[in-house]
Nucleic acid binder design. Structure first.
Lengths: 195, 195, 195, 195
DNA sequence: TATGAATGAGGCTTCATTCAT
DNA sequence: AATGAATGAAGCCTCATTCAT
């Protein structure tokens, strides 16, 4: 009965997705620490027992959520960086891709909710950071970037990207943010100087 | 009987401190989301009811912890920045002060615990960010920094500072991190180039 | 699977009833004010959480108890009053029905326990009072009762009924109490005169 | 140091009174069952420990409250009944005195608060009921009332008095209520007939 | 005697999870 | 696989009461 098996597969995928979508809203609304499995279930048409057919805990949902996003953004970032032919392209396309992704995926956050930066060491996320370091090393090898501590550079790029992403989420212009971040790394403060 | 009133005051201050110290350890060990008020109380010689004479919830303790730290680091940062006579000094002393503070205040984190960055909008913390922006604007006016978007610059400095601080906590050298961050903002990647 | 759905419904109804029975005993034994939800649960084979699947608080159980009783006695009182063909029948059958009901439903009260008359304004109870007033007005219209303030009469009947019911619960004869109350309303003290 | 001892006595009496007044308001506002000793203390300028210099529990305060009121109304009722020279006077002055007392002593009740009729068997209250029975027996002996079951009559008078008192508290006219209650006991429904 | 913080028992409630249907 | 009520552990918090000052 392949058709029926198929149907079942589809339902399973749908239920998983239903839970993930609900969890994302709930975590955004009340914050991860305050949210409970019950809250996630309640935001769903499913029964409480059904949750456990898909996830073992809210931590696992959270991991899945982050991994999904990491999986979604990683290829885009990789492609952007690897297609770069100049230092400027390497930086600008990385920042721009990240800002656009953040903008697309922003969820309405309840005022007063925590901004939870839960630790990011799931394999999928760690792979994202590893890829950044790899791409940096490759770019240094290709001559796109000067020789330097890839770990420090990766940290600095990440920090600037995340902080400016917050400004973008708050309404700042993607192009302006991209130009600013790129300028800093290309030439420091003098390069970011207002005309 | 002022002496006796004093004694009471002292005990109260000690109890409050006892709770804060315990909370800091507990949050570091198990992560803020997983920690409970009970866990904090258990890490204390005090009775459960006593906790509620000082804080209403674990969120309130968390706020107090952050505010205490913000209050401690803010004057040091301000002084470092305001004493600067050159662009390099402005950047380097700010970064170095922050890295040293983070190192002094690092708490042993249980492996696998979340790194929770709960929302940072308490007055004390917000004041810290506001002070950074003020100091940037003042530095621009003094000619220490070129004219630019103070909001973006503040975000970029903050991002680099926090990310590199993580590396410092993980064992990176304070001087190396300071030099790297300063070089990036002084002259971009070329300036951070390995000799 | 309607049978299985049925089974569940039955279990639910049984649980609800179990709680109500336990609550009634507990309230009678220790008084409503002194009783706790825990006491009610302990008088039950159910788990603590189960209580909250049925009631939100002891107040809600209390309401349910009173409403159940109000629902049980109201039709009997209505029928007794509406079947009356004489003033005496109207009064006597109302009092007798009430006394008998109270006797059937009396719970052993621990000596020293409060007799708590929590507020009686749930819809079911209020409807009981409204029905009495309606029946009084109808009886006046039918000529069974002389024209008078239905509100005052309703209050007087209620007061006499409840107070004499206490004597009945304490062992007084239902017939004697019924005769006395009826006589008072038929002809005042002279009519209640001992032979 | 008699003056100072005196002063102390006065303060003690004032504190006791302060607590009683606060307790009365609190019980009226939230209902006896929901009220806590803490609530009473909070409605007071006194410290929590001070409460226990005067009362052992909220039950004891409640007793004191009722006893104070019973002590206040009892002589008035006795005097009213004993001064009566006719059946009508006996009834009317008893009811009127009670209604007036209730009106003077009514406390604003929070909507939705329980109307708690906690058990009334403190010595002071029981004495009030005993006095009513005594006065009834004496009145029968004096020929003011016909011979009848003093217990039933006491119950009926009490029931009518308390129920009509509720109407009086709700705004009904004291004279109208007195006339109605008196008429019922003098001649039953016909005597209470609207002109 | 008054004060008010400390105590810890214990009531209240929710929660994650199980499991019979 | 889905359901949703039952479970009871455990967190939350208040409370009555004590007691050092």
């Amino acid at each position: 009965m392949p058709a029926s098996a198929n149907r079942r597969e589809i339902t399973k995928a749908q239920n998983r997705e239903t839970i993930l979508v609900a969890a994302r809203q709930v975590f955004a609304q009340m914050g991860f620490a305050a949210a409970t499995v019950r809250d996630v279930i309640r935001a769903t048409p499913l029964a409480s027992g059904t949750f456990y057919n898909y996830f073992k805990s809210k931590e696992e949902v959270y991991q899945a959520l982050r991994d999904d996003r990491a999986l979604a953004v990683r290829p885009r970032l990789r492609e952007a960086r690897q297609a770069a032919n100049t230092t400027e392209e390497f930086l600008a396309s990385g920042f721009r891709t990240f800002f656009l992704f953040v903008l697309e995926n922003r969820t309405e956050v309840a005022p007063g909710a925590e901004v939870s930066h839960i630790r990011m060491d799931s394999p999928e996320v760690l792979t994202g950071f590893a890829e950044l370091r790899e791409d940096i090393s490759a770019a240094i090898a290709r001559g796109l970037l000067p020789a330097m501590d890839a770990d420090f550079l990766s940290a600095a790029l990440t920090g600037v990207a995340f902080e400016l992403a917050d400004r973008v989420k708050a309404g700042a212009d993607v192009d302006a943010a991209t130009r600013f971040a790129t300028a800093i790394f290309l030439g420091g403060l003098p390069a970011a100087k207002t005309a």
